[in-house]
Each structure stands twice: as C-alpha cells, then as structure tokens.
Design a protein around this nucleic acid. Structure first.
Lengths: 219, 219
DNA sequence: ATTATAGAGATTGTATACAATCAGTACACA
DNA sequence: TGTGTACTGATTGTATACAATCTCTATAAT
C-alpha cells in the first residue's frame, strides 16, 4: 500500500473531527494548532482546509480565520431540494442496471436490522443503498456532487438519525425502495425515494432547530 | 477597491488562458513557470491550481504534473445531462419570480442581434438568460455547481458557437425561452429550454469530435 | 535485440520563515 | 461619557529552500 500524503492525513483528520462533533459548528480551526497536533507543517494542513472548503465543510474568511461550517435551515432546504432531484435523476438512469444480487443482499441485510441493532449498521446500509443508486447512474460528476452535499448534512444527520423510531422507519423506507428497484418499477421507486428523502430532511430540520435553541450552534 | 490577492491573480490568469485556448487541452502547467511569468511565488500559484482542479478545469496528477483538462465526449454527455435537468429545476423555482422588466430588456436586446453582430454580444446575452434563471431559482449551491459545469465546457463552446448559423439559431431559441417565461408558461419554457440545451450539446459534441480528428487535443 | 537497472533531471510535496491584515484593547482627546 | 486612533497579538497570506517521487535515458547484462 502506498504511503498516505500528509495533506490526506490532515484532510481525513479534520473531516472526521467535524463529522463526529469533536469540532463544533462555528468553532475556529487554527492551521498552526492542527499542524502541531499532527506534527506536520502548515502547508499540507492549509491544502486540506481548502479541500474541505470546496466541499462546504469549513468556511475560510480571508485574513481572519477558518471556521467549521454552520448549517442554517436555509442550507438544509437547499441541500435536500438538490439531493431529492439529483438522486431521482440517478435512479432513472440506474434502475435497469443495478445488479439484482446486490439488491437481494441489501434486502436480506435490511430485514435483519431491529431497534436494538447498533446505529452504525443503519448508517452502513443507508450509504450502501444510495451508493448503489448513484454509482449505477453512471454520471461521475453527479456522484461527486452528491457526496459533497451529503457531507454537509452528515454532521447533523448523525444526530437526527438517532431520534426515537427514526431508525426503524428509515429501515422500512429503505426496504420499500429496494423492493421497487428489484421489480424495476421506476414509478414506485421514485415515489418512495422522494418520500424517504423528504422525511430525512424533516428530521434534519427538527434537529437543526433544536440545536439552535439549545445554543449548540450559533449563539 | 481592495487589492487583489496573488492567489486570485494566478487563478484569473490561468482560467483566462485555458478558456481562450492560450493553454491547450492536455498541455502541462508547471507551477514554477507560472510563478515566473507572474513574478509571484509558487505558493499562490499552487492554491490557484487547486481551485481550478475543484472546478474541473485542470487535472493534477500527484507527483507527476498538472495538465489542462481534456474534454471527452463522455464528459460532454455527463455535463449536459446534468445541466439540462438542473437548469429546468431552477426554471421551475424561478419562473414566477423573474422580474418582467429584466425579461423585456433581454427580449429587446435579443431582437437587435443579427448574423453580423459580434459574437461577444451573443455570449453576453446567453450568460444573461441563464443567470436570470439560475439566480432567481434561489438555490446558491445549484448556481455554483452550474457555474462549474459551464466552465468545463466553455472552452469548447467558444468554438462551437461560432459555427455557421449556430449564433442565429441560438438567438431564436433564446427568444422563445424568454417569451415563454414572460407568459409564465412553465410547460413551454421548460420544453424550449431543454431543446436549446440539447442543441448546444450536439453542437459541442460535433466540435469536440472534430478537434479529436484534427489532433487539436489528445495526440 | 531485449530487458533490467541505475542515475540524472524535472516536477510536485513539504517545511519554515517572514509579511500583511484583521480584531480587539488601551489610551488620548473632545 | 463617548469617540477616534495607535498599538499589540493572533492568524492567514506569501516566499523560499529542501525533500520525495516520477519519467526518461543511458548503460549493462542476458
């Protein structure tokens, strides 16, 4: 295996820290601090921050500082509006070509999940389903853009997905989507996918507003 | 007016050079050369190149070199498929809110254009129309993404738009779109917009293939 | 003749020092 | 008391030197 570049070390470190709430929305990221923590120079840290900025996870204010991105409700609306339409677009392109055995595997896996299953299992299956759709859609730019959109809400989603019943409901929605794709039924699949994404959006919005009230983000 | 950062100087310089064919697709960009030409250090040049990479105008191959992006027909297919659907999405959101006087101005301007008008006038009105749609769509992320998609084909489009009759036809298509928006007729506007983008795509594909044959790009 | 290998040159990747700019503070002044 | 102004510290922006890695070529071995 080829050695990882220092830029990538910094990138993965920062990305993980943001998504797991070790770095809270709105808090500053000082290049020197990160380079000290990782024992590398500022240069690769800087390049990693530029990448994260392009991805929408941090906001660089020139000559002032770099800050962890704060999601507003407006942002959530924008992101999910795009996500819904782009994923449907990918679905239309992919529905005939998604391998049936992959669908069967995913379906089998979904039916094993219960309320007691560890949340990571839900996250994994969620990523799998969306990857299945997007990758088979065959448009690389669309796939990359969706990744970037998802990264911007993932931070909040990791909280919202844990709300009571949400995991269970989400699993049922996934199952409905998978089964519609298995039947190559684009009408149903599209409707289920749209509904699922709208539910996730609502859930994300709720958490977003709660955080606001509690002063977790903003001030 | 605030002084422009050296990173931006390098960014604008390189972007312009690529879009005007001073730098041909596939040709290498050496950081040291650019920094010499602009009398600045490699650091801001490097940051500019990373920006251009995120935008899809250059391709950085780690430890090997940086190259001007070469558009393949596959890329053109991807880009226009996305552009068509995203612009329609913006149009649906924008059609009621695009100011009538802006539409009237653009319509008046379009009717003054003839085969003899300088091509820049066509480019300007083209940009205006698409900006009108995308900005009033109200989704900033969608607007930014479309900008980046357009940048990737602009290089080729500046050639394709000059083909015989293309300017004239394009003007008529624009006029039809504008008039449908004036009437707030989403059905017609969407159909005209889709047709227009498909025509531009076809024209772009033709030029793309010609360049291939002539060895302008590739080798 | 073909292949393998070592070395040189070119280019990007990284470290580090210095410059420029911004925010906040203390202080002078009205 | 309020306001403006210069100063200080912190942080990003830029310059430059050095390291790592890749490509290409020359050379040697089979």
């Amino acid at each position: 295996m080829t050695k990882e570049s220092r830029k990538n070390i910094a990138y993965n470190y920062l990305r993980e820290a943001i998504l797991t709430w070790k770095l809270h929305p709105g808090s500053p990221i000082v290049e020197q601090d990160i380079s000290d923590q990782l024992s590398i120079s500022r240069t690769p840290v800087r390049e990693a921050l530029k990448l994260l900025e392009a991805e929408g996870l941090v906001k660089v204010m020139p000559q002032r500082g770099t800050f962890v991105f704060e999601l507003s409700t407006q942002d959530v609306e924008e992101i999910f509006a795009l996500r819904e339409n782009l994923e449907v677009l990918a679905l239309q392109a992919a529905i005939q070509s998604i391998p049936i055995d992959e669908l069967n595997n995913l379906e089998a896996y979904l039916t094993t999940l219960t309320e007691q299953s560890p949340p990571e299992h839900f996250f994994t299956s969620d990523r799998q389903l969306h990857a299945l759709i997007v990758v088979n859609g065959g448009n690389e730019r669309l796939a990359l853009f969706l990744d970037s959109l998802n990264a911007q809400v993932e931070q909040v989603r990791r909280v919202s997905a844990l709300r009571p019943n949400r995991l269970d409901v989400s699993m049922r929605e996934h199952l409905a989507i998978v089964q519609a794709i298995q039947a190559r039924d684009i009408i149903t699949a599209e409707a289920e996918l749209r509904q699922h994404i709208r539910n996730v959006k609502q859930s994300t919005l709720d958490v977003c507003r709660n955080m606001w009230w509690q002063g977790t983000i903003g001030k």
